[in-house]
Nucleic acid binder design. Structure first.
Lengths: 238, 238
DNA sequence: TGTGGCTATCTTGCATACAAGACAGAAAGC
DNA sequence: GCTTTCTGTCTTGTATGCAAGATAGCCACA
């Protein structure tokens, strides 16, 4: 699910690969997604790449600058606020709609929180970013409602892009603590409390952002100079 | 916004036209959307039609049957349940997140409810279907959150498709009454109550569906025989 | 009369070709 | 040295061509 070019290039693998790359913080906001590069990477023609880009655009993941190229979105401060507001609405509504936490669900969340702890102990920041977002998707999966899962996956992807732009430092321990408290409320069957905690948790994370910072203080520069982004792994190299 | 081929064929007009057609119940579920037909209708090449179809597919509005064609989705009974559940989650979360109802918002909703009454008096069922769905979108617009508006628009489109498949008769008066009660709660500033009423309203509508009915008892037949659907206006004729 | 298979036609899937615009870098002028 | 302009290159935008598959209708045949 996370390597680029499998032998069988299925219909939506380009789309899924890019979203997966964002969710695991391997693709930065503003990353250029050239049709030719992607076509070569996946061994297909530009046509199919464009179709994937169109779908991703309708999901709010990429945007096109006419005759310049496709870019992973760089959410503005207003966008960031809207995304967090949307997440509060959907996640609180979701938790409030829940009635029971199944045994499997409890185990799944427990295992997830253990993974979070392991990643924290290992200092694996990229994996941690992925897990912190995935927790909320896991909760959506408990509901069994694929529509909500899709919505939250896309919102989480945008959240990760936002955090890469505006989050000066990563309070992983605090987020993990928030997740644990939400889980405890769910285990206690108090889904109203879980919803409230979830809203507070999202408020906390949003408050930790520096939304006064320009979205692209020097990532623009990097792109202009055709330099790779300032992280360990280059965006889409095989 | 509702006629097919304007002189300026903008980037997303195909997409918007089809969604608009569904929202106003002019396009039935299962309607075949031939690439060639749409291309001719909009005066563009199949390429752009395909791009619009791709975006609509990612929004859950159409689906493709390989080498057979594009079709407006015919939600299954399970899909219908998931859509209503998702709407309850999002709309209840939305209303609970609201704090005030502005003067403009109150006027907009009031005007909308008047339109509903007018359409009921005129017996304009198609317009009524549109308005009944649009009420919920209007509420989303009050929040000023474009993400939530988009989500609810797509869910509403699917809701209308569901009602065309499973709703034996249309209790417009009952729905209108529900909308009025939600509006009253909002005017009173009681958004928790408004959220509860919204959930009940959606429950009522869902209960009015006959989900045991097969999704396509004879619309399949109509398509197979290349007959127009059994409504007044043919799906996409100019 | 019913049934099986064949073919003609129509559909989408996918690649490619060409056009138009944006950008970078060089060259020219001041 | 600085600015301006021009041109080559690279990008996406769009149409078109061809191939593969699905379907319908016809024909042969039992």
């Amino acid at each position: 699910m996370q390597d680029s070019h499998t032998s069988e290039t299925t219909q939506k693998s380009i789309e899924a690969t890019i979203v997966s790359g964002i969710l695991s913080a391997k693709i930065r906001p503003g990353t250029r997604l050239g049709e030719n590069q992607l076509a070569a990477l996946f061994g297909v023609s530009r046509t199919r790449v464009r179709e994937a880009m169109m779908r991703l655009e309708s999901r709010g993941i990429v945007h096109v600058s006419p005759r310049r190229g496709w870019f992973v979105v760089e959410p503005s401060a207003e966008d960031a606020i809207a995304v967090y507001e949307a997440r509060r609405i959907v996640e609180a509504g979701l938790l409030r709609s829940m009635r029971t936490l199944t045994e499997e669900g409890s185990k799944a969340l427990d295992a997830h929180l253990t993974e979070e702890r392991n990643a924290m102990a290992a200092g694996d920041r990229q994996r941690l970013t992925y897990l912190m977002g995935d927790f909320h998707i896991r909760i959506a999966e408990l509901s069994g409602n694929a529509i909500i899962v899709d919505i939250l996956r896309d919102l989480t992807a945008r959240t990760i892009l936002i955090s890469m732009l505006y989050q000066s430092e990563f309070h992983a321990a605090q987020s993990h603590e928030g997740h644990c408290r939400i889980f405890e409320a769910m285990q206690a069957g108090d889904f109203v409390r879980a919803a409230e905690l979830s809203v507070e948790h999202l408020d906390d994370v949003e408050m930790g952002l520096d939304l006064t910072a320009r979205p692209d203080p020097l990532s623009d520069l990097c792109n202009s100079l055709s330099l790779p982004p300032r992280t360990a792994s280059p965006p889409l190299s095989p």
